[in-house]
């Protein structure tokens, strides 16, 4: 990362861009600039092109650039608004803003819905939930009988699918998640409340005063 681009940063992200991104998110200008420090680290960890590739996100989350993970794929797809296979800085800010402790719970619920709606049909279907549970069991080297897995899925849908049409709509998911707030635990990153402290290198780089 110690190239000329690093010395230019964060000036390569102009103040107008920082201000616009702050306006579009729950972050202050200083916080957007601090997150640019994190973005730079992630986006040069494998390919130094100022964009986060899936392998770089995987490396940041798992400390390994290779390996399949269903959830990482879905998270990456949701960050990648333009669907061009990379995460740009403004996409990074937009998505992280949902994880801000002060972001509206409706935004968090919506993000989680899109994450679980694997095939993007507008509904969470039993096959998708089964696929996600099976992926975690495999990831964790746990074994569960098909019968027990079916029981768990059936019980979950009995609770969440209030109109009993065999799939969970966004409205049903909203009601269900509000009733079970622990489901949204991963949708809040406490670090984002004080991001300028989390990235002290920012203090020496910033030229912006909030």
């Amino acid at each position: 990362c110690f190239d000329s681009r690093r010395r230019q940063s964060p000036r390569s992200c102009q103040h107008a861009d920082l201000a616009r991104l702050a306006h579009e998110s729950r972050f202050s200008v200083n916080e957007v600039e601090a997150l640019y420090e994190l973005f730079k680290k992630l986006s040069c960890s494998i390919i130094d092109d100022g964009l986060i590739h899936k392998e770089e996100l995987r490396l940041a989350l798992f400390q390994a650039p290779y390996g399949e993970n269903l959830f990482l794929d879905r998270v990456f797809d949701l960050f990648d608004e333009k669907k061009n296979g990379v995460i740009e800085f403004e996409e990074f800010i937009h998505a992280l803003s949902v994880f801000h402790p002060y972001a509206p719970i409706e935004e968090k619920i919506d993000f989680a819905f899109r994450l679980y709606d694997l095939r993007q049909t507008g509904f969470i279907e039993p096959e998708e939930v089964r696929e996600m549970v099976a992926a975690i069991l495999k990831e964790s080297d746990m074994i569960l009988s098909d019968e027990l897995l079916t029981m768990i899925i059936d019980k979950t849908f009995a609770d969440a699918d209030s109109d009993k049409d065999g799939k969970i709509s966004k409205q049903e998911w909203m009601a269900y998640a509000l009733k079970h707030p622990t489901l949204l635990k991963n949708m809040t990153l406490p670090y984002l409340k004080d991001v300028t402290t989390a990235f002290p290198s920012f203090i020496f780089n910033t030229e912006v005063e909030d």
Partner: peptide, 25 residues
């Protein structure tokens, strides 16, 4: 304990936990 499939997913999925993005920096 894990009779709620979504609770199981949200508590067990490491790919859905972005905090390590901050912890490892």
């Amino acid at each position: 304990k894990f009779f709620n499939a979504f609770e199981f997913i949200s508590s067990m999925s490491s790919g859905f936990d972005l905090s390590s993005m901050f912890e490892n920096k």
